[in-house]
């Protein structure tokens, strides 16, 4: 049943509905105080595999495993899985992986699979947990992305071409949706007007850059990024390339380095230091003087005693 749940989305949906109906009926028969407890839906383990390629070069697989219980999701920690390429045989084993605290595991493709990898343009990945096959049909087709930048009539353009491999040939990949933009912290800021772009029948798309004069590094460079997300055929692809289209920005730390009231004790405002030290020193100077006077009284007293 577990396998069924994992594999068939609609089946799972049906089951969930069925279960919740059952639960409702069941809990209706209970009194209120136990209702919350009884409604607890069954926990389901969900394993997800994704293929990633970066700059048409490095490729890796990510596996994520969670337990889903009602609305709550908890990662499955420290669980071992085995990933295979094309067939579940020792010869085509990609790796044994173990999930981390977030329920995630990652692997590269080992060089030993070179022959198998080169043999075809399309591959299937298989994931086994022990003897149980949890994923058997995650497939990807090899592809590559080219970024080309050009400035015509003062307008900056990014031209993207995506190709897929078919047999030993590279053909245009049409209808691939992607983000085209500038790599920023945590996301890609789209370069043109649209959120995403899709390749035409020739596998290309061209974007006129709207987001001009963005801050770049100290040389004025920005990173252009093209990202295909969870594509059914190609997986997750990312290509990045530098372009000198940004505005030169140098880090200005003056604000932080000021002497202010909120600075650290090593950057106390000078006026405050001056004031505080003058007051403290003059008052305590006098006090120390008075203590000396006390000692003088003491000395005088001893002298008088003699």
């Amino acid at each position: 049943m577990k396998k069924l749940l994992l594999k068939i989305n609609s089946g799972k949906l049906l089951l969930t509905i069925l279960l919740s109906v059952l639960c409702t009926v069941y809990t209706a028969a209970q009194d209120d105080s136990t209702a919350v407890k009884e409604e607890e839906p069954e926990a389901t383990e969900i394993v997800k595999l994704s293929y990633h390629s970066s700059n048409n070069s490095i490729q890796y697989l990510l596996l994520k495993s969670i337990i889903k219980k009602g609305k709550e999701q908890t990662p499955v920690k420290n669980k071992a899985y085995t990933i295979y390429l094309d067939s579940a045989a020792d010869a085509t084993k990609v790796a044994d992986v173990k999930t981390d605290a977030d329920g995630k595991a990652k692997t590269f493709l080992p060089p030993s699979l070179k022959q198998a990898w080169d043999a075809s343009a399309q591959h299937i990945f298989i994931v086994k947990a022990g003897d149980e096959e949890v994923i058997s049909d995650y497939s990807i087709t090899k592809s590559k992305i080219t970024i080309d930048t050009a400035t015509t009539d003062g307008i900056r353009n990014i031209n993207i071409t995506i190709q897929k491999q078919e047999g030993s040939e590279w053909l245009p990949a049409a209808d691939v949706e992607m983000k085209i933009g500038i790599q920023r912290l945590g996301g890609i800021l789209t370069a043109g007007e649209e959120e995403t772009y899709t390749t035409d029948s020739s596998g290309t798309v061209s974007v006129a850059v709207k987001n001009d004069s963005l801050p770049g590094d100290d040389k004025g460079n920005i990173i252009l990024a093209v990202k295909v997300d969870d594509n059914e055929t190609y997986g997750n692809l990312l290509v990045q390339q530098a372009a000198a289209w940004g505005v030169k920005t140098t880090t200005d730390n003056n604000f932080f380095e000021q002497r202010t009231l909120w600075s650290t004790r090593f950057r106390t405002p000078l006026w405050l230091l001056f004031l505080a030290y003058t007051i403290v020193l003059s008052v305590w100077g006098t006090l120390i003087y008075l203590v000396f006077q006390l000692f003088k009284i003491k000395k005088l007293g001893k002298q008088a005693a003699h």
Binding site: Q293, K296, G301
Partner: peptide
């Protein structure tokens, strides 16, 4: 207090100290 003999000098110093202290204590 073993050292207090009540000599003139002692009185002078202590009186002066008390005056200084009384002035100082106000702003503090």
């Amino acid at each position: 207090g073993f050292f207090w003999k009540g000599t003139k000098e002692q009185w002078k110093i202590s009186n002066k100290s008390v005056v200084i202290l009384s002035i100082m204590i106000i702003p503090v």
